[in-house]
Design a protein around this nucleic acid. Structure first.
Lengths: 243, 243
DNA sequence: TCAAAAGTGTTTTCGGTACACCCATGG
DNA sequence: CCATGGGTGTACCGAAAACACTTTTGA
């Protein structure tokens, strides 16, 4: 008697045959942290296909018929960096009809965290890919600047609640480096005493005997992330909560 | 000289022509709260197309060539409930190759929050859709049970950080009802005194003079969510944080 | 011996939690 | 007048925040 938004009697699940297929891509915001420079970076490369060939772009690919989106995101990550088994997470979908001038493409935004010291540099170079500091991202193809911004915001959220920062550091790292990493991610200064207190009080960091003397005469103790202890804590219902 | 994961010289952006298009659907987990029953519910309907026609399913549709996924999710929501301009959010993507036995379909999971008192009941009924209490969801088609579970988890997370609960209540509501709603969402008991203190201290609830006497002789004051005050708070950097 | 980074403690403040009693009113 | 749900206040505890000094050692 009202609400004539649609005919209730019409079939309201379109059949598979009537539906129009769409190109689906993954775009992967690959983050890395350079412990020397103490900078958070994103891997970009020059797009190879028209339109907009030659412009900087995120690492992406179409999702193939025989792979899930997760696998596709993993595939291109491995292809460009040689790395496998790293932190990789879907965070947003971009489906505006006209976002890609080449065709109607729905893009699945992923972000991954890798250890710069473990990447295969020859591979990165062979694709003419380049690491850009998060503050110096050039104008990118399509909506990729937006995608990076969204990824960074999620990285910030996630960093507060999960110990994912360790995916960006070498196996062994010092507390000062960890602090610098968090400051880069959060884009704000943190009190070093309170940070140290908080992060060590959780109990998932093991101090090694070894020290890193590359930055000071005194040297800073190396620490290692203890995954087992972290899983125990999670089982007990613990959830990290940084400011 | 290592990392032979792929030929660096090969084109590493597949051209648009080589890519295979994929069916893309949205599945919308529509939440409603019945203030009388004090139950959180999800809208489901009987799937019309094979395979698995006749089984209970989320409200979904394929994404059309001329619409974004957001619009598609909005479209089916309006079609089934008559409602427009409600809380609607994408939360996850389901892209396993064999998830749908009918074809390769990538599904975008959405969840929406509606006011049960505002839905067009004739419309809901005309589609033979039905509201199921969150604890009594039947076995659904494909991976839809999983999708609901994921949606509920996100609703719980979001509820702690954003004042989205108000999207499930009538314009005017009492604190006891709001408490019951939060308890339904969180699936746990909350201390009523602390809850009241916390939620009122934020300052985005306006007390009306009117009382709801349907549940007690004394009557409970009606409150209203004040969007303007909330936006002001957000601008000042405020973020809600419930236990 | 001193510059430069690493490491350590204390006090204050604020929010979270636990907890028990009075209030209003229709029947 | 009393049962029922609605509403209020307080004491305690622990975590977060602010804040400054000592330690180490290579150059």
């Amino acid at each position: 008697m009202s609400a004539n938004t649609s005919k209730p009697t019409a079939k309201h699940n379109e059949s598979y045959k009537d539906a129009k297929a769409i190109l689906v891509a993954v775009d992967n915001v690959i983050f890395g942290f350079d412990p020397q420079e103490e900078k958070l970076k994103v891997l970009l490369f020059k797009r190879q296909v028209d339109p907009e060939a030659g412009k900087w772009s995120l690492i992406g690919s179409f999702v193939q018929a025989d792979e899930s989106a997760d696998i596709a995101a993993q595939r291109i990550l491995t292809k460009f960096t040689g790395l496998d088994d790293v932190f990789l997470e879907h965070f947003q979908t971009y489906s505006e009809v006209d976002r890609d001038p080449g065709a109607r493409v729905i893009s699945l935004g992923y972000y991954s965290l890798i250890r710069l010291d473990e990447q295969k540099e020859e591979l990165v170079e062979s694709f003419h890919a380049h690491w850009f500091h998060i503050d110096e991202i050039p104008k990118l193809v399509i909506d990729h600047n937006q995608i990076i911004q969204d990824a960074l915001r999620l990285l910030q959220e996630d960093s507060k609640r999960k110990p994912i920062g360790f995916n960006l550091l070498p196996e062994k790292f010092t507390i000062p480096k960890l602090l610098k990493l968090y400051q880069e991610i959060m884009q704000e200064q943190l009190d070093d005493r309170n940070f140290r207190k908080k992060i060590l009080s959780v109990g998932y960091l093991d101090r090694l005997e070894e020290k890193d003397k590359s930055n000071s005469k005194k040297g800073a103790y190396y620490y290692q992330f203890n995954v087992e202890k972290y899983f125990e804590l999670v089982k007990e219902g613990y959830t990290l909560q940084l400011p």
